[in-house]
């Protein structure tokens, strides 16, 4: 009797642990989605800026708002900056994508593990009921 109850307890603990891990992973994924959303919006904005900068005449005055002041910038410099910014965001998005994929794989395996553990737990209990 004692051995069987302890086995049940052990199983339950394991199940709890797995479930916790799973919920943690899901939280991470949600966070990842949020960050990604932010970056996607920024990417769109930057692309818009780049398009407009390309359409500007070459001698146009370009200013960058840094804090409370407008700082005059060269058009070429501004262009390069925006390019750099876009590159950075793209890289970041790619990284986030990879992380997301990894997380999802982990989540799937965890889900499977929990499922197996649960079905086994049920069948194990059924032996004694």
């Amino acid at each position: 009797m004692a051995s069987s109850t302890s086995a049940v307890k052990e199983l339950q603990r394991e199940l709890d642990n797995k479930a916790n891990d799973l919920s943690k992973l899901q939280k991470d994924i949600a966070k990842n989605h949020q960050v990604r959303k932010k970056y996607t919006i920024q990417l769109g904005e930057n692309e818009l800026v780049l398009k407009e900068l390309d359409l500007l005449e070459e001698d146009a005055n370009v200013y960058k708002l840094i804090g409370p002041v407008l700082v005059k910038q060269d058009l070429a410099e501004a262009n390069a900056n925006v390019h750099k910014r876009i590159e950075y965001i793209s890289a970041e998005l790619k990284r986030l994508d990879a992380a997301l994929q990894d997380l999802e794989e982990k989540q799937n395996s965890k889900k499977e593990a929990v499922r197996i553990l649960f079905s086994f737990f049920a069948s194990f209990l059924m032996q004694f009921v």
Binding site: E52, L53, K64
Partner: peptide, 23 residues
């Protein structure tokens, strides 16, 4: 002075501004 986004401003004529706004 038109805000293009991301803190960038461009000094333009009204004609250019209208084009930007239409886009």
């Amino acid at each position: 002075l038109v805000l293009l986004g991301e803190g960038y401003y461009a000094g333009t004529t009204s004609k250019q501004t209208v084009e930007i706004l239409k886009r």
